[in-house]
């Protein structure tokens, strides 16, 4: 894989002192999540998948982060935020209503459901939602802007960056207990941290990253 941290794989450290038992259990469970809806209906699942693909498009040539499964698990397993805006229902109800409303908006504008639209039309609807311009009855009084900020953006991006593949992409060290880190200052890298490729110098970084562990 190319990118800033070629061949850096946080999971290569899973049997090193950077990972303890509870971390291994936690992350393995996440990697093994069922790739099927447990909270959402099949129709909602399809719309959710289309939303995830636009909010966090994923590069080809690598395994995909299963975003719909992660969002579904958040609700199914009652992973709560601890608050909701007075104008919004709880997370599960908000998602169900929001996805239905998005499909209703798509049908009104294009006579197709959201997942059947092209990427540009999907983005245009999401941007309108971000600005709070969507006001179809199907929203049931929930502000589309609030749904976008507090559910769509928050849940999808949090799920994305909860996954080791995303940690590789940004060069995050990942789990670090009990070993922690030693080289703290600017421009210092511990041997168990990913190396960043200087422009045009993928090979050297790849060589280092294959030995990170």
């Amino acid at each position: 894989m190319t990118g800033r941290y070629p061949d850096y794989d946080v999971l290569a450290k899973r049997d090193t002192p950077s990972w303890n038992d509870v971390t291994r259990r936690t992350v393995y469970r996440r990697l093994d999540l069922p790739r099927m809806p447990r909270y959402f209906s099949e129709a909602e699942w399809r719309t959710l998948g289309a939303v995830c693909d636009r909010i966090m498009p994923q590069p080809s040539g690598r395994e995909r982060i299963p975003l719909p499964a992660l969002v579904d698990a958040k609700i199914f397993e009652r992973h709560e935020d601890g608050y909701r805006l007075a104008s919004m229902p709880g997370q599960g109800e908000a998602w169900k209503r929001g996805l239905a409303a998005l499909d209703a908006e798509a049908r009104t504008r294009h006579e197709l459901d959201f997942a059947s639209l092209g990427p540009d039309d999907q983005d245009a609807l999401l941007r309108a939602m971000q600005k709070g311009e969507l006001t179809h009855d199907a929203w049931g009084g929930m502000p589309s802007k609030a749904f976008f900020e507090h559910r769509v953006i928050a849940d999808v991006t949090h799920c994305y960056y909860s996954h080791p593949i995303a940690w590789n992409e940004i060069g995050f060290g990942g789990p670090a207990s009990p070993r922690g880190y030693v080289r703290m200052g600017l421009n210092r890298r511990d041997p168990w941290e990913g190396a960043e490729a200087a422009p045009g110098e993928q090979a050297e970084a790849r060589r280092i990253n294959q030995r990170v562990g």
Binding site: S18, W19, N20, D21, V22, T23, R25, T26, V27, R30, H79, E80, D81, G82, Y83, R84, L85, A86, G90, H158, Y161, S162, G174, P175, A176, S177
Partner: peptide, 23 residues
């Protein structure tokens, strides 16, 4: 030592996540 994962998502269990309404 046995309950805390090095993981942002999992450690949400440390917070007060019962429902509150904000306005």
């Amino acid at each position: 030592l046995e309950d805390f994962a090095s993981d942002e998502w999992e450690q949400n269990k440390l917070y007060w996540t019962d429902q509150r309404v904000i306005d």
